[in-house]
Design a protein around this nucleic acid. Structure first.
Lengths: 156, 156
DNA sequence: AATCAATAAATGACTAGTCATCTATTTTTG
DNA sequence: CAAAAATAGATGACTAGTCATTTATTGATT
């Protein structure tokens, strides 16, 4: 008798995967026009909102990566969107800031993300969005990632 | 006034990402004991359920990959879990089947997945699972991936 | 001060996901 | 039948995600 439940759990598992991929594809397609990936865009948005972050602090704010975003940032530096600044007191730290180009791209990202959110708002009412967040969020209760979500303002 | 909606849409976006990653981590941790990844396990399960698939047909059944699973299967062949058999009539095709070892691992995968589904069933009622599938699925309406989900039995 | 522990970041090694292109084969069609 | 189109799969090139290890620096211990 547990089999039917498992089928539903399995269905949810794969639907979550499919939705995540689908949304990511939508966003990446939109971002392609400005030569960014969704993960890179998340870094730009985060660096704009919080200045002077270290690599470690940035890593604790990203949902897209659980480890350290060394290489993600490396590519943004290579592409001239982010600068690394040595910390004067503790040279283990690197602090990050957007370059002028980075700031300009960040602004474009904002608008592109609005298009994605527009699609979500078209598909769902505010109540439904909240309901999904609450239900899905229940599965994350007690997990480290909830700290990140709280810091970002996506968690009560 | 659209900003609040966008915050909720953005929250959903990141919570879906976080939940997908968290579930994947749980599953990968469990699968590590038998030396498989979640994607590899999905292939094994799929090849057990449907015999004599070609690479292309397999690709159309996987949620974990949208393209062709050439390299995913390549690694399973390398590890001795899957065999490639040349198609006698049309040598463009390759048909796939589990080896004995592959069949044994597939059976272990089944049990490991039950542990994940157990966690989901503990967190959610049957109605909640269904509700989430319905709501999330709405975002996939009309997309190619729904064909895959239907073939797999996770879509009405 | 010298050693040891802790910390931040970088790096290696791997799997995987995406897109474009290439190769080999089969099918179409003129 | 020969050339062109279509198809299956393989491969190259890239980003990214994960885990383990290494390097450099700072802080703590004695």
């Amino acid at each position: 008798m547990e089999e039917k439940q498992n089928v539903k759990a399995e269905a949810l598992r794969y639907i979550i995967l499919a939705v995540q991929r689908h949304g990511n594809r939508i966003l990446n397609d939109l971002l392609k026009s400005i030569g960014l990936t969704a993960s890179q865009a998340e870094v730009l948005r985060t660096l704009r909102d919080r200045k002077g972050l270290s690599l470690k602090e940035l890593g604790q704010l990203l949902i897209c990566e659980s480890g350290s975003p060394s290489r993600l940032v490396e590519r943004l530096v290579r592409d001239g969107l982010v600068e690394k600044i040595a910390h004067s007191k503790d040279s283990r730290y690197v602090t990050l800031q957007l370059t002028q180009t980075g700031k300009e791209k960040e602004h474009l990202v904002e608008n592109i993300e609005k298009q994605l959110y527009g699609q979500l708002n078209q598909a769902y009412s505010e109540e439904e969005l909240e309901l999904m967040c609450t239900l899905l969020g229940r599965f994350l209760k007690g997990q480290p990632i909830t700290e990140t979500l709280k810091k970002r303002g996506y968690w009560n």
